[in-house]
Each structure stands twice: as C-alpha cells, then as structure tokens.
Design a protein around this nucleic acid. Sequence first.
DNA 1: TGCAATTACGCAATCGATTGTGTAAATTAA
DNA 2: TTAATTTACACAATCGATTGCGTAATTGCA
Lengths: 343, 343
Amino acid sequence: MSKDITIYDIAEKFDVSASTVSRALKDHKSIGKKTREAIKQYASEMGYQVNSVAANLRSRKTNTFGVIVSWINRPFISSLISGIETVANNNGFNVIISQTRDQYDREVANAFAMFQGRVEGLIVSLAMESVRYDHFDQFISSKVPLVFVDRVPEETLADKVIIDNFKAGFVATEHLIELGCRRIAHIGGSQSRYIYRERQEGYLEALRKHGLAPDEGIIRHTQSLYAEEANAISSELLELPQRPDGFFCANDTSAVSVIQCARKKDIAVPEDLKVVGFNDDPVATIIDPPLTTISHPAIRMGQIAAEHILNKTASKDPEVVTLETELIVRQSSVIAPQNIVMP
Amino acid sequence: MSKDITIYDIAEKFDVSASTVSRALKDHKSIGKKTREAIKQYASEMGYQVNSVAANLRSRKTNTFGVIVSWINRPFISSLISGIETVANNNGFNVIISQTRDQYDREVANAFAMFQGRVEGLIVSLAMESVRYDHFDQFISSKVPLVFVDRVPEETLADKVIIDNFKAGFVATEHLIELGCRRIAHIGGSQSRYIYRERQEGYLEALRKHGLAPDEGIIRHTQSLYAEEANAISSELLELPQRPDGFFCANDTSAVSVIQCARKKDIAVPEDLKVVGFNDDPVATIIDPPLTTISHPAIRMGQIAAEHILNKTASKDPEVVTLETELIVRQSSVIAPQNIVMP
DNA sequence: TGCAATTACGCAATCGATTGTGTAAATTAA
DNA sequence: TTAATTTACACAATCGATTGCGTAATTGCA
C-alpha cells in the first residue's frame, strides 16, 4: 500500500471539505449537482478507491467470512469452498480460509485468529481430532454467525448444514443387503466425529433390520480415511477365512482402495464383492468398476452455509438444515445399475 | 462485531492513557513494570484483542494476500491454494480467494476488488479466456507484489512461478515416440494460454526431432479441458481411418477421457494406444490402466509463490522461477513402467 | 542539599471515511 | 421587500490503535 489518493486530497483540490467529497462520491442529494459531478469525475480520473480499512473501522464491519476446514485440497472440501466463495463474492464479502490439517490445536488457533480478524461469519467443518468446541464459544457469545457444515458437533451449538448420515449409511448398507450380501464390512472414520458414527449407526441398523449380526472384526475405523489406512485394512479383511462379500466405506477414497485391493487379489467386483463408497468424488466414475456411492451436495452445502450467514440477523435458535443425498448405483455393486432416489 | 473492549476501556479502568495501555500490551519498556503487568493481566482476563482493522488503518497494512484462480475445486488449484495458505498462515497473513470461473470479466472484477481490498500481495493463475492483462497494472504501478503461477502471461509483467511446459510436452511426446508411436494426437487447452501453447510446441518439437510430420487433423484444442469436450474429441479421433496410436493430453481429465473412450471401443491401452496426461491428478492412479503423466508440483508452487510475496521488499526486476517436473510412467503407456526424471 | 539523569507516562496527531448537527447563502413565498 | 424555506456545504466527533514528543516525578550522585 503506497500513497493512495484520499478524499482529503480531492477535498483540497476542490477547496471543499472531506465530508462533501465523501457525500458527493455516494451521490448524496445534499451535495450540489455541479460539485457532485465534478468530484466524481475527478475521483474516477485519479483512480480513487475508498480505503475499505478506514471505512470498515468506521462502520465496525469487515465484510469478511471465515472458513475453517481440514484440508483445502480434498474434492469435497474444495467444492464446499467453491460454493461458499460464489455466494460470498456475489454479496460483496471476502472469504478467508484456513486449514486445520485435522489437528485440534490448529483448529483452536485458527478460530482465535478468525475471531481476532473480526470475521462477520464463520463456517466450520471440524477437524478429525476435535472433541472440544469451546473455542467457538466466543463467536456464539459475540453473536457472530457461526455455521457448522458436514463435520459438525453432535450438539446443536449453532446452525448446521448437514446430510442425514444415518439414513445414507442405512440406505447404502441395505442396498448391499438387497443385492445378497450377508457379510458386510465397514471402513469408517474417526468415531469422535459424529458424522462417521452416524454412518456406522445407519449401517448397523440396516444389518439389524435384516437380521444380520454385526461382526466387530469387520468394522474398522481409520484416523484419516486416507488410502494408506484403507489399503491396510482392506487387504487384511480380504484375506479373512470368512471374507466379506460387501463393503460400506465412509468415503470414496477408502472404497477405491477396497476395489483396487480386490483386483490385486483377483476378487471380482461386483460379482464376489460389492462396494459402496461415500461422497461421489470424481474418482468414483474413474475407478473400474465405477463406484456406487452416496452423493454429497458439496457446492450446495457451501452455498447454503454462506446464505445462512448472510441472512443471520436476529439471533434465532440454532437451525439445522439437512440436505438430500442420493444413492448413486454404479457397477461396483450391480452389473446394470439404476439410481435410487432416497425417500 | 459487537461492543468489544478497547484500549480506552482498559485505560479508563486503570486511570491511565490509551497510549500507556497500547505500550503496556506490547511490553514497551517505557511503561513501568507494575502498570504493565496489571494492564496485561486485566486485558487477558477481559478477553481483549486488538482491533486489527484499526491497527491496519494506522499501519496502512492489511496482512492479507489475494489469490485469483479459475476454479477452486480442481485438484491442481486446490493443492496450489493449500500451499499458499500454509505459508501465509505461518507468517501471519490471511488469504482471500476468488474464482474467475475462467471468465475474463470476472478476472478483471476480482482484480479490482482485490486491489480495493488493499491486499499486500496477489497470486494469480489466469482465466482460460483472458488475453489482456492491464487489470493487473494497478498492482505493478502501486508496487503490490504480484506473482503469476502456472497459467501465466507470456510476457514477464511480474514474477512467475511455472514449470517448463515446453520441455514437459517434449518429454511426454518423445516418450510416446520412443515406445513406437508414429501417429500421436494432441488434446490441448486454449491456445490463448501460453502454457498450453508451450505444451503443444514441445509436442511439435518432439515430432520434428524424430522426423514425424504433424497432422493438423489430430491436434485439437478445447475451451476448458473438461471431460465432455475431451470425450467428443477422442471418440471422433478414435474412429478415424488412420487412428492415432498415441495421445498426449494437456491435462489428466482429458487423458482419462481418452482411456475411457478407448475402452468403450475395445482399443487396448497401452498395447494399441498409449496415453500421456498432464498434472498427476489423483485420478491418474485410479484409472485403469494407471495414467502416465507429468507431475505438477502444485503445493510447492503455491508455497513458493507465497514466499515470493513475503520476500518481495525491493522492487527488483521480475523473477521467473521454474520448478522441476517429472514424467511419471505408468501402464497407460508401457506395461512395465519405470520413472524418468527430467534432466 | 542540589542538580542531572532516569523513569513513567500523557498529549495530541494520525491513519481515511463517515455522519449528525449547524449555518451561511440562495431561493421562494407572501 | 421581508420573512420563511431550501440548498449546499463545513465542522467536528467517531471508529481503535499507534507513536513522536514533551514533562512531571523519582532516583542517583556528588
């Protein structure tokens, strides 16, 4: 920031006061037409731009949203951010982003930095590790709009935009059962994250409904849902004497690992092993066979979260928005797929 | 932003001046030890946080970087941003992001918004459409550090962090030639983007070096390098009487399209058709056969760009940093791959 | 005890833009 | 022509934090 031109410079030029310039520039009617036009003309010639820092100080606003996510470079997250950015940008807001790398302490640090930065709204998808949420209390008590998305706390501390993870887990699992699977494994995420617990609960409920006994041995949890962990788990499970005939995975990355692992072991998918993932990442249509998975409306989720912040005027009770998902059936579960819209 | 506590509140409490509080809080030695400690103690109890807007106004700084990219939710871009964010965050800077959606007018609008927001540095990856760059002049003339990454203008208006696209295109194509391909098609990006022209030039140079005549009919350009366009092109080219025996694609998305299209037509990859992509997106290892491609150091590129901005003190001449890439050989080009490090 | 050297702070301007209130000058109405 | 309005703008405070300069009070030393 070098020596920019200010309203004082313009005021001096026209031998008027800064307040006149300020008003002229925003077409305030109390400024005479000639003066107004002359000032606007000159300002635009000189490339004047309001100093938003000064304006923000005066107005006590920042026009900025904060976003805290685990990693930006995950398909779901980057689409989420894309949705947030679109809405924010269309409404004159900036978006500042920080990554927790799934670490609790970074989440805390980032939350404080965002608060100090006086963001006018915060959108958060929790770190895998976090089990305490009091670093968000400052937003709530200061009435800064706060929206959790996707990886949300179980308690309703603030607005949430989510999907019905239980139902999705249930639908995915029932789909496998209806296709004849009787021994369905589950690769889940950290059970300290509500969404992964819910997906697992949905899975368990589907087993229960169909009279299948859950087997602790083939229900596994990973720290990160990364390929490495999923590879290790699937290669172990696929060597079991009683090998699973189905997998419900809490994300697509791990589902892809299962398929790749099965191929190495010459296990036919979907004939001998049916796999369902979660998210509908781009890889889902690339893997062979294409992955049956749960669609996850990332962009819309971001848009809705951003809109929630924009519309958050009165401090109403926390609101929970649940978006629809869909089971997208592809060849990793059946030979001739057909989409099933969730009721 | 509600009624936060300010240094004036604290000053009143201790019956000192605001300047004393300000100095005490930053351990200025000219403030007596007792006063200093008492003030700091009280400030932290009250949860005082400096109003960075006010501090920024006074210091004429914003501690903010701007980033302008085409789409956040592309693997390369989101990794780039991840790298930028990491460096910025570690140095106390915020990152604000905007998407051009590959539209020139949005790029212009975003550039002006960033300038008005007084970012202290701007990192840009050009929109596919942009052919004029004068909306960046304001940054240059105001000496706001400006770094172009990846999709850069041909002229060196400002710092650039790039890869050697010509060399990469050359290496990729020569790889195909050495494997016996004699009729190599190219799916390129918009030729108004320098990087895609360079990739194509490298491709052409490899053909030339090996005495192969380029065939305009199998050199195609897409607007977006999206799957749809690439599908149409590859399905057309693979129906040609003189069908190509190799494809060099300017990104992985289109290379994947080629492979999928070939499979539909029962063309064996790599036996009857060898394919090389660009970027090493996650899908490269998921597609079957895994895709031979050019590694693209997205995260490092982002880090370096951010570091450049941090270190930009004197207004030196524009600097160009060229990062190394690597041809990553996988089964889409040879049965038994082996990596080739580019010299 | 007297004077110089510290110590410990306060004052006031500054960073630009904004806005409520006040007031000359110009215009209108009577 | 004079009083009543309007018109068109200036003043000054405000948003919080920062900082150069100045000064009263305390301490040190001879």
